[in-house]
Structures are given as structure tokens and as C-alpha cells.
């Protein structure tokens, strides 16, 4: 059976068809999950932010004119809400004492090296982490990353370079061994 296009599903969802909206959620869940889990780590908080992304999208259905691709639009919301969640987490940690972030967040399954890199990635400041998640983890090209983050390409490149240097410094003990 031929799959309905995003536009067709959007039209149906705008008319109040929740089944069509559920299909859109299902179709774009992976992209949103990749960004949110990349930023926050897996867990309840990430799922909550993921749900919030689609709720915001539902509330803005009538305002979404399709100037950007739907996936780009969703990734942008996901990134903004993840950054907000990181800020909340930081405030919470400031109030309730510092908790080692790496021990709190889940780590994606994979080799030991992958886990070490992922953990190290979550210690980066948010502005670097956004670039690394989109460019290195998700494999979007630099222009797409710049569009999603609404940044100049030069800024994306410089943040990426600085993020890599920071990661290399953090992981230097592993390179020596």
C-alpha cells in the first residue's frame, strides 16, 4: 500500500484526524529521539521532552506553512526543548547539589569506546553538543546542521572543531593507553 505523504497527513491532521497525526508522530519519532537522546541521554526525561515536541507541533499545526521540511522543523523544536531541559537540569543540580551527569543518564548500547565517547559528549556545553549531535551523531551535513540550528555555516564549523578538541582532551587518557 502506498504511504501517504507528509503533506497529505498534515491536511488530515489539521482537519482533526488523530490517526493521521499518530502516523506523522510514528514517522518522525526516530529523528526526534536521536536528537533528544543525543542531547539528554536516554530516559524518562528524554521521552517526556519527545512527547512535548509533538504536542507543540500539534498546537502549531495551523501555523506550520511548510517553508522548511517537516523533519527540519521538528528537529529544531526538539533541539530547543532539549536545551531548555538541560538548563532546567543545571538549575536543579545547582539547588540539589551536583550529580555526576554521566552516571544519571543512560548510555546508548554499543561498544565500550562508544559509551565512553557518548558519556564524554554529554559533558560538553550545550552549544557544542548541539553541533556534535547533529553533525557527528546524526550525520547531517554542515549546511543542514546550520539550517536546523539557524546558525551561519562558519559558526557550525568552528564549534565543531572546538568540540572535537575538547572531546580529544577529555579522552586523551584513553588514547594514551
Amino acid at each position: 500500500m502506498e504511504q501517504a505523504s507528509d503533506d497529505a497527513l498534515l491536511t488530515q491532521a489539521r482537519a482533526g484526524d488523530m490517526e493521521a497525526f499518530a502516523q506523522l508522530v510514528h514517522r518522525h519519532e526516530s529523528q526526534v529521539a536521536a536528537v533528544v537522546c543525543g542531547m539528554l541521554g536516554k530516559g524518562e526525561e528524554a521521552e517526556d521532552v519527545g512527547q512535548e515536541v509533538f504536542i507543540r507541533f500539534y498546537q502549531a499545526l495551523d501555523r506550520f506553512r511548510g517553508d522548511a521540511k517537516l523533519s527540519t522543523y521538528l528537529v529544531r523544536i526538539a533541539m530547543n526543548l532539549s536545551i531548555n531541559a538541560l538548563k532546567r537540569r543545571k538549575r536543579h543540580q545547582a539547588v540539589h547539589g551536583a550529580i555526576e551527569e554521566a552516571s544519571k543518564v543512560g548510555v546508548t548500547q554499543g561498544s565500550e569506546w562508544d559509551e565512553v565517547v557518548q558519556r564524554s559528549l554529554r559533558t560538553l556545553p550545550a552549544e557544542f553538543r548541539t553541533v556534535v549531535v547533529l553533525r557527528l551523531m546524526e550525520g547531517y551535513d554542515t549546511a543542514e546542521t546550520a539550517e536546523m540550528l539557524q546558525l551561519p555555516i562558519g559558526t557550525v564549523l568552528s564549534r565543531l572543531a572546538r568540540a572535537q578538541v575538547k572531546l580529544r582532551e577529555q579522552l586523551s587518557k584513553y588514547f594514551k593507553s
Binding site: E29, S30, Q31, A33, A34, V36, C37, G38, A46, E47, G50, Q51, T108, Q109, G110, W113, D114, V116, V117, Q118, L121, V132, L136, M137, E138, G139, Q164, L167, R168, L171, F175
Partner: peptide, 17 residues
């Protein structure tokens, strides 16, 4: 080293909630 970091950072399986 950068190549190794990039490889470690790359997502290997589809993400899901």
C-alpha cells in the same frame, strides 16, 4: 583520534523513545 571520536559518536542503531 578525531576519526575515532567521530566513529564513537556516530549513532549505530535507530533511535526510539
Amino acid at each position: 583520534q578525531h576519526a575515532r571520536i567521530r566513529e564513537g559518536a556516530r549513532r549505530k542503531s535507530p533511535a526510539t523513545f
